[in-house]
Nucleic acid binder design. Structure first.
Length: 753
DNA sequence: GACCTGCTGCGGGATG
């Protein structure tokens, strides 16, 4: 583009924008609108449908939404027009505020940030004189509805647009359900639907994704998916072998294989900017401490910075600043905190240590590298596998971690990722919404609650008897009561709940100790972690000695020291794996084709896994007798495996889902076959299976649910009886099995140097 | 089950 003709204004949507925005774009030196921006402008200006804009982080999605939104707001006057922008992160609101302010000012449109760190005076000003762009979190919107209910029909009167940023981060979660309910309640207040615009990372199946923006599907959803540039992908997977048995000291302070991974990271990444994703905060601490010491021992300035959710804002910002500055190379060792949209500047490569949690997450992580034109995306994956021994289990023999990693990379290269999961009851969040609506309106009839939240709202999976039982239970617990006219009101207990600030978040969090060194807050660790004066701790990538522990104030004072144990964040490894990934693992194992992106050790490990697969003839055998146990290999996802394990448990068997297989103790393969035949044929009630599960309380208000509803809720989220039966029937009745073919286009993968 | 995220309004004191 030349200066005399900076934009194809006659042929693009550019001409539809407010002249002041055109001027701003021109002054910013943009040579043309991006594809997604160009396509979004007419759809948003017309405003006839909802819209999802799917593209990778920082690809101009926000501008695609706000150029036309501000154009439209600039044209309206009475009532004062308003656009609502909802973000999952306060940090993103602050970013967007900075980016939007100058542009909005040119159009004399007010931009108001509203979250927990914004002073109340600013919020009061907005309530008195609403309009412009309101940037808010779901929690703050909840608080607004709860506390300013009487004023809100006036505040939202001029609402023209709702933008949901990072839509993918809300899907299938309590927060997502809460947000859908809040948006529905706002529309109900003003008595008309408002165009919703979702900004998202690319999602597996976009047709399913359309339902996540407005659950009842009452409006059309337009979809703008930015064409992924044919970018080169370079992949190298390395294998590392761990001795079969570790000494006590090694298992505490770091195994030889982990030390070798750290050495490899040091050798390969030093001198460039990168992101390293181990799968836990403990591993982040291990690697960042070790890598920083390696720098010190060699007399180099440190280039490795830890970043995870338990580190204080200050320490996280240090890591972000180190990545953004250009004087010195920096690598962050991080959890999914750096998967989100925080700006961290260009990154050369992404390192995955251990299998990724999902293909979707791997894609998000990888999208952080190769952002400069002409640069490839570079993925390195390090897999630690145990040396084979006489007592190695199936998972070790089939090299589960390595196979999962290879399978996920192959699916990623083919453009697949996990689809949106099926709808759940979300009864815990329904409790919150009932109480919040009562606070908002000062009371409501059961029928009104039912219509607002269930029949026209997002909780449509809840039945009338379930809803009635829930209201009864809340009444028994003296959270609500009914006056003689039938009006439901908040009882003092419910009043207190909704008045306290802790009510507004839909998700729950554990209590924690704050870790302080001098006057500096380093972060927090769970209360369950045993800490005592004199003990040692590795935290924020450094070593500390505990000076004092205040149980009451929940504060731990530490001083820098030489020793250190890992902080011990709780939790087992792994999220629910999708069935498609297991099918791909099987395809990798049954094939003899070389996997070009494996190093020599990785090749050897894969060869061992394939040898095991062939030796047990796993193409045909799916019931393996190993000692006195039977392993059931369905090559399905975790939901189906978990459901099968529970179904076996309800028959009094000792069964457990172990990832790859479902293990049943003290049984023969023939006996197992008979029982599985019965499970495949019989009528099985998922709620009865859920009733046998202990510790079902997971979400914030699960404790207030009637037992039946809690069971149904658990079943809706975790149990897939038809899935189990379909697989079992195929295994037991039919002949040859169906394997996934190598359909679809394979993205060519190169190797990094 | 990994990981992550969020939160009100008053009242007192200083300042213009």
């Amino acid at each position: 583009m030349t200066n005399s003709h900076p934009l194809r204004s006659e042929t693009t949507s550019f001409a539809m924008l407010d002249p002041r925005i055109q001027h701003w774009i021109w002054r910013s030196g943009w040579t043309e609108l991006r594809d997604a921006q160009d396509r979004a402008i007419p759809v948003i200006l017309e405003g006839k449908s909802d819209l999802i804009i799917a593209a990778s982080t920082a690809s101009g999605k926000t501008e695609a939404a706000f150029f036309p939104i501000l154009t439209r707001l600039g044209r309206c006057s009475d009532p004062p027009p308003l656009a609502l922008y909802v973000s999952p992160l306060k940090a993103l609101i602050n970013d967007q505020w900075r980016r939007l302010e100058e542009l909005a000012e040119a159009l004399e449109i007010e931009v108001t940030p509203w979250h927990g760190d914004i002073p109340y005076s600013r919020k009061k000003r907005f309530l008195a004189d609403p309009g412009g762009c309101l940037l808010i979190t779901p929690e703050s919107l909840e608080a607004m509805l709860c506390r300013h209910g009487h004023a809100l029909s006036r505040v939202f009167q001029g609402l023209q647009y709702v933008v949901v940023d990072e839509l993918h981060a809300f899907i299938g979660t309590e927060r997502g359900m809460q947000l859908l309910s809040l948006l529905h309640r706002v529309e109900s207040l003003i008595g008309r639907p408002v165009m919703r615009i979702g900004l998202s990372a690319t999602l597996g199946d976009m047709t399913l994704a359309k339902k996540v923006l407005r659950q009842d599907g009452s409006r059309k959803v337009a979809l703008i998916e930015s064409k992924s540039a044919n970018q080169e992908l370079k992949v190298l997977v390395k294998g590392f072998v761990e001795p079969a048995k570790l000494t006590l000291d090694q298992s505490k302070t770091g195994s030889p294989a982990r030390a070798a991974v750290a050495q490899d990271i040091f050798d390969v990444l030093r001198g460039t900017n990168n992101l390293v994703f181990p799968n836990s905060r403990d591993d982040v601490e291990y690697y960042s401490d070790r890598l920083r010491r390696m720098c010190e021992e060699r007399g180099f300035p440190n280039e490795f910075w830890p970043h995870h959710g338990n580190l204080s804002k200050e320490i996280r910002e240090e890591a972000e600043a180190a990545l953004k500055q250009t004087e010195r190379p920096a690598t962050a060792i991080c959890t999914s905190t750096l998967e989100l949209g925080i700006d961290i500047g260009p990154v050369r490569s992404v390192v995955q240590v251990g299998p990724p949690p999902s293909v979707a997450s791997l894609r998000q992580r990888l999208g952080r590298s190769g952002r400069r034109p002409g640069e490839p995306m570079i993925l390195r994956a390090d897999c630690i596998e145990k040396e084979l021994g006489a007592d190695s289990g199936l998972s070790i023999m089939l090299r589960e971690g390595l196979s999962t990693t290879v399978a996920m990379i192959r699916l990623l290269a083919r453009g697949w990722c996990e689809p949106v999961s099926k709808s759940q009851l979300h009864a815990s969040t329904l409790v919150q919404q009932i109480l919040s609506v009562l606070a908002q309106y000062g009371g409501a009839h059961a029928q009104q609650l039912w219509e607002l939240l269930v029949t026209t709202g997002p909780f449509s999976a809840v039945s009338a008897p379930q809803f009635g039982a829930l209201l009864q239970k809340l009444r028994q617990n003296e959270i609500i009561f009914q006056d003689p006219t039938g009006l439901i009101l908040l009882a003092p207990k419910g009043e207190a709940m909704t008045q306290h600030y802790s009510f507004y978040a839909a998700f729950s969090t554990d209590d924690e100790y704050t870790i302080v060194s001098g006057h500096r807050t380093l972060g927090s660790v769970p209360l369950s972690r045993p800490l005592y004066p004199g003990g040692f701790l590795i935290f924020a990538g450094r070593r500390w000695q505990v000076i004092s522990v205040s149980e009451e104030g929940r504060i731990v004072q530490v001083n820098p020291a030489g020793g250190g144990n890992l902080p011990g964040f709780e939790g087992a490894l792994g999220a629910a794996l999708h069935g498609r990934v297991r099918e791909e693992m099987r395809a990798v194992l049954r094939s003899s084709e070389a996997v070009p992106f494996l190093d020599a050790v990785g090749q050897r490990l894969l060869a061992e896994a394939r040898e095991t697969y062939a030796r047990y003839d796993l193409d045909k055998n799916w019931l393996l007798q190993l000692g006195s146990d039977v392993h059931i290999l369905l090559w399905t996802g975790d939901r189906i495996n978990d459901t099968l394990a529970l179904a076996l448990q309800t028959r009094g068997l000792k069964a457990a889902s172990e990832g790859l297989s479902v293990a049943v103790k003290g049984i023969s393969a023939d006996e197992a076959r008979g029982i599985l035949l019965a499970i495949g044929r019989e009528q099985i009630d998922p709620i009865r299976i859920a009733a046998g599960v202990q510790n079902k309380i997971r979400e914030k208000w699960d404790g207030l649910l009637p037992n039946d509803l809690l069971d149904a809720c658990y079943a809706s989220a975790n149990i897939d009886v038809p899935g189990v039966q379909k697989v079992l029937r195929a295994k037991l009745n039919c002949g040859p099995e169906h394997f996934w073919g190598e359909n679809g286009k394979t993205h060519p993968i190169g190797l990094p140097k």
